[in-house]
């Protein structure tokens, strides 16, 4: 059984190695830049930077569902009839939209470190604890993203007329089903442009995580720049990689948008 699993893992790794857009047999670093500083393997920095690209993309992709879900519930809290719920949601947004992302990141990273350290010391273990930079970055960016996301979703909720809910209740659907079948599909359509902007902002904010030591695009190119003294070249590569990410996500978003609008096209 384990041999079978290993075989599957190996096959997947081999397949990813073949379609790897940077360092695979048809990767751009291998094909066009094999003789330069961006070559893959031990000769250049291609594979390190490709790894950084992967880290940046996975950080943003991992943050997205967390932030979206939290933002959705905060938007619901903001239009709740309960006063305390509205107030606490508004405090949340004011706080995390007003603080600089870098400061949020530092507070989360160092604050969590101190908290966990104290907690562990209280339980009788005295060693140094390091918070995972990926996790801290995901948490901090998720806080910021959810604060902005709740505002986008709130304005989208306001764009949906009251009659849509009432129609759902009149059909005998209960609260959750109305939300799921009637409100959410329209909500996505209204909120998509705003969410697209937030996703772009999130992609750009991931660069900050390099400051607390996560090996993302900026950190890897920074190391390469310091070692090779070719700072301009490597930071240009970093900019280009971020542009590639932005371009790819704009393609994905336009396809999602046309998918969300598929019912409008027929009309």
């Amino acid at each position: 059984m384990s041999g079978f699993l290993t075989a599957i893992v190996e096959a997947v790794t081999a397949f990813i190695g073949i379609i790897d857009p940077f360092c695979g047999p048809v990767g751009i670093f291998n094909l066009f830049l094999g003789k330069t500083l961006l070559a893959c393997g031990a000769a250049g920095w291609g594979d390190e930077i490709a790894f950084g690209f992967l880290v940046t993309a996975s950080l943003a992709i991992a943050t997205l569902p967390v932030g979206l879900l939290m933002g959705f519930f905060i938007a619901l809290a903001k239009q709740s009839e309960e006063k305390s719920l509205r107030l606490s949601a508004n405090i949340y947004t004011t706080l995390f939209r007003g603080l600089p992302e870098l400061l949020t990141l530092f507070i989360v990273y160092y604050g969590m470190q101190i908290l966990v350290q104290n907690l562990v010391a209280a339980m009788g273990y005295d060693g140094t604890i390091e918070i995972n930079a990926f996790f801290a970055g995901m948490f901090a960016l998720g806080l910021v993203f959810s604060a902005y996301c709740s505002e986008v979703l709130l304005s989208a909720f306001k764009a949906i007329p009251r009659g849509q809910y009432e129609a759902g209740y009149a059909l005998g659907l209960h609260h959750g089903r109305t939300m799921q079948l009637i409100v959410l599909p329209q909500l996505i359509r209204v909120a998509l442009p705003g969410l697209g902007n937030l996703w772009m902002a999130l992609l750009k904010d991931t660069a900050l995580v390099s400051v607390i030591g996560l090996p993302d695009i900026l950190r890897q190119t920074g190391i390469a720049a310091r070692v090779t003294k070719e700072a301009f070249q490597f930071y240009t590569v970093a900019c280009l990689l971020f542009l590639v990410l932005a371009f790819l996500s704009s393609l994905v978003f336009s396809s999602i948008e046309s998918w969300a609008k598929r019912s409008e096209v027929a009309r």
């Binding site: 772009m200 750009k204 900026l218 700072a231 301009f232 930071y235």
Partner: peptide, 23 residues
């Protein structure tokens, strides 16, 4: 506009501060 809106401010700062420093 595409360049400056598509890349992080931090990368642009590094490009100008460290990158131009190599010239």
């Amino acid at each position: 506009v595409y360049f400056f809106r598509g890349t992080p401010l931090l990368t642009q700062l590094f490009l100008i501060y460290y990158g131009l420093g190599s010239f």
